[in-house]
Write a protein that binds this DNA or RNA. Structure first.
Lengths: 343, 343
DNA sequence: CTGAAAGCGCTTACAG
DNA sequence: CTGAAAGCGCTTACAG
């Protein structure tokens, strides 16, 4: 009743274990009749290869781990992550490799995740949404496990990564607001223990300075990359600087929150306050008015992460690879784009 | 440089492989000196047990799979799932068992998930958010893999499950609206290929009938368990029946969407239209006004799922277990509760 | 308390 | 094209 072994299948098919193994693994050097009798036996007996035994000899797991290091539960609030995962899945599609999501939302889960990943369950790891100086990428790498990081890796870590041009995107967004004649431009930042948040903030400051203006610390507030955080940040900013006429939010979700706050405060968008987000996720099209946003394709990012990881696994080398993907400003109604624009 | 084997550790420590194994597995019958010399060798050599070899002999993986069968990407839009996962994690906390999330969002990923789960990677599986007549639970079970389903399992499937009292919760919600004097009560349903959605709808109809009224098909619209769906459904309902004075939405997310639609249509909540949701998730407290909702603890549900699964794994039996958790109506402002109520 | 030995279920040169 | 045999790295009675 339980799953039979190769041995049993071999006996039923009247061949050796080696031949059954060859059939299971698609070896071309098997006589057609042998193959058929093996296939029949496999079907009859409901044979499924034992992964542990196979892994023990091949040293392959045919699965990769993905950890999204979000301690906050933000993981399930932002469509961003779903897109990345979809992209990773697409990048893996051509190969018989499973994607395993390892949760890491609490210190306890974090330990468990590290144990799982170093425990030889996976052939490689994609790490995402890293905070602060997370030692995990280097820890895994030192154990010989191929690793790729989504976004900028922790400072000083020699790890492969796939990133988006956060700096250029932020500058484009702010330049656009400046060109629209906005003079009091605020920014809602992500958590500043995350490289993407830091880089977008630096782009903001750089663009302000490049326009000959002096950055004003009052025009900056952290929104933690959440909708609620964005709303709260916008409320704070409005209270501190009622004359704000533009906001660059470092994510669409925060921009959506900011729109709620502006609406509640009776400010018209874009007439009184122009708003630009970052991500250009589906959120950007569902806000009222439609949100201008810096486009980055998380699906492509995910696919590249998968590609780079598979490359590293196949090559069995220690080469550090990186890919930086372009970003592009998409102007919609929230910063003065055409009201009916489908874009 | 690569990870050493038991053999190497044994030689370094001057003992046999068996003794090293005993130390690694915490056997009490090891002389203190042997233990120490083994521990020293392990530390020096950076030994980590090979999982595949261990699994091959013990037949344990020390990890369980969780699949959330959401084809839509809804997975990352609803805090509901994060709560369940947190609960499962809590239920596993006492044991050295890893939680592995297996994605199943496209037909391709579904196949891959099934292959992974039947491939002997996990000791048991928790299945969640099943649609229609998904054969996966029975498929896994027939392969001898312990399975627990979150929610009502597919019709006719003899599988363990943990569910919430959807029927009672829906009735309580509708009775409350009736007691508030509402006469035109609509419902926004979830996708009717999901048992939870069906059961909440039936509870709604039953309560309407029990009040001596005749259900009106015009007062029912599907919102697909998403925010956008809830909003759209509310728009449709308002257009069809402008005299609606109450809505029972089968999830908080849909209720939040309905609130947006009501707001946009200029209806006051609760004065013109009373709204009750389902889940009592964090969303219920962040809407304006605060949302009355049927409370169910997804964290507890998750914990119970883990408990039942661990029981089944430990017992190695074929017993079908079920747990049904109570639900409770929480009245807040959206259906006439006190405006400042913290509850 | 400890070691020698068998065995878990596969894959893979090797020889034919 | 195929089989006998070695071996992957562990655990676990068994005997001492």
């Amino acid at each position: 009743m339980s799953i039979p072994t190769l041995e049993v299948v071999a006996r039923a098919a009247g061949v050796s274990r080696a031949t059954v193994s060859r059939v299971v693994n698609g070896s071309p050097t098997v006589r057609i009749e042998s193959r058929q009798s093996v296939e029949k036996a496999i079907a009859q007996l409901g044979y499924v290869p034992n992964r542990a035994a196979r892994t023990l000899v091949t040293r392959r797991n045919d699965s990769i781990g993905v950890v999204i290091a979000e301690p906050t539960g933000r993981l399930f609030g932002d469509p961003y992550f779903a897109e990345v995962l979809r992209g990773i899945g697409a990048g893996l599609a051509a190969r018989e490799v499973s994607l395993v999501l390892v949760l890491s939302q609490s210190p306890d889960e974090e330990r468990r995740a590290a144990r799982y990943l170093t425990g030889g369950h996976v052939d490689g790891v994609i790490l995402f949404s890293l905070h602060g100086n997370d030692p995990l990428p280097e820890h895994l790498q030192s154990r010989g496990i191929p690793v790729v990081v989504g976004g900028q890796p922790p400072h000083g870590a020699r790890v492969s990564y796939v990133d988006n041009d956060n700096h250029g995107g932020a500058i484009a967004a702010v330049n656009h607001l400046i060109e629209q004649g906005r003079t009091r431009i605020a920014t809602i930042t992500g958590p500043l223990d995350m490289p993407a948040a830091v880089t977008r903030r630096l782009g903001f400051l750089e663009a302000i300075r490049a326009a000959g203006r002096t950055p004003d610390a009052n025009l900056e507030e952290c929104g933690g990359f959440t909708r609620e955080g964005g709303q709260r940040a916008m409320e704070v900013l409005l209270q501190r600087c009622p004359d704000i006429d533009a906001v660059f939010a470092a994510s669409d979700l925060m921009a959506a929150g900011a729109l709620s706050a502006l609406h509640a405060a009776g400010r018209r968008v874009p007439e009184d306050v122009a708003v630009v987000g970052f991500d250009d996720s589906i959120i950007a099209l569902s806000t009222q008015p439609a949100l201008s946003s810096v486009h980055q394709s998380m699906e492509v990012t995910g696919r590249e992460l998968a590609n780079v990881l598979l490359q590293t696994i196949d090559a069995r080398d220690q080469v550090v690879r990186h890919v930086v993907l372009e970003t592009e400003l998409i102007v919609r109604q929230s910063s003065g784009g055409p009201p009916t624009g489908k874009n």
